[in-house]
Simulated scan of single mutants.
Amino acid sequence: MHKKEFKSIDQQIDLLQERGLTINDVERAKKYLLSNNYYNIINGYSKPFLESENLYIKNASFDEVSRLYFFDKELKQVLFNSILDAEHHLKSILAHRFAEAHPNNPKAYLDINSYNHKKSLSVAHVISSLNNILRKNRQYRNNSINHYLTNYNAVPIWVIIDYLTFGDLYSFLNCLPDNLQNRVANDCAEFIVSNNPNFTGQFPPKTMLSFIKNIQEIRNVCAHNNRLIYFECRSDTSYFPAIHSHYGITPEDNRRSVYSTFINLQCFVSKVEYAKLHNSIRKKVNTLNNQLKSIDINSILLLLGFPKNWNGCDKKGQQSNNKKRGITIGTHL
């Protein structure tokens, strides 16, 4: 087996130049690689600029690779912030609907009878996770869980909900009985109406859960600072005509991409929150477009699942639709 040997920064620079990558400021590139890791930058973000495994396309530059890395980093930040908004809304809705269904039992989330009996193994895992959260946090003073256990001997759902990870949240929702899942989905439908005023249908819980599952995967990529370009979720989301048909997505199309998750977020965030996300991404795409010289911006958009010419198409055919949905082109709200 061929071993990867350590290379000094100077050797890294020499190798890139031998492969045809233009480096306009060698000293600056050395400092950049020292503080940003050759593996993360070059192995992670130079692939779109390669003609073959060891040869860069004509005029490809180190600056372009580093700017693609920065674009990916900024994209993760804006997506992560929007996902936090979605998480906040989902937790609030779930806590309210669950407490409403169990008004006299603050410990109902620890009772197997509060869940879908057809998912007993998953329910056992959820209850175990919730018990672990209570056990770990009860020892800390000035902690809401400690406060409620000390003073009331029970922690209501609207308190413990903030301690759940996004994965915990998905598992909790997935194990709810059908009637509660429907209530949560109906509440989320208000976000769909906010972003798509013509929507009048239902938001099926199965579709909602498939959206949340892929949002969770994208969230993990963003939170752990992994690479977004080339990333795809493990499964297609359910096909939801109210969203997908609006963007020309058919039941046969891939629905595992970053773009798919981006448009699905409008089912969980407000009109203003989604417009802010949309416009932030557009601004960053346009900035990268101005920085790329050797490749076309569409080659990057396609790696994220975005349609060709996404950063300009709304200015033409879809401009009126975006105005109806409260999306301002190219500006922050």
Rank of each mutant, 00 (worst) to 15 (best):
P241V: 04
I329V: 09
K283P: 02
L164W: 03
H88Y: 14
L176V: 09
L169M: 15
H244D: 14
S280K: 05
H117T: 14
L79G: 00
F62Y: 08
K284S: 13
F98W: 08
S129F: 01
G330D: 15
Q216M: 11
K30L: 03
Y170K: 08
D162N: 12
F199G: 09
C222S: 15
I297K: 07
S66H: 01
E232S: 05
Q202M: 00
A154L: 05
Q266M: 15
V123P: 06
W158T: 06
D25P: 05
A242W: 06
V155I: 10
D14M: 11
Y115D: 12
H89I: 00
Q11M: 12
D72S: 06
N186P: 04
N142L: 13
A99R: 07
Q139K: 15
A275C: 03
L302S: 15
I329R: 05
Y32A: 00
K324H: 03
A29V: 05
F70E: 11
K284F: 13
L50N: 01
K76D: 05
K76R: 15
S120V: 15
R138P: 01
E53S: 09
K31C: 06
A95E: 10
N179P: 00
D236V: 03
N142Q: 14
K118A: 06
N143C: 09
V123C: 08
S120M: 10
F71C: 03
S46Q: 07
I42W: 08
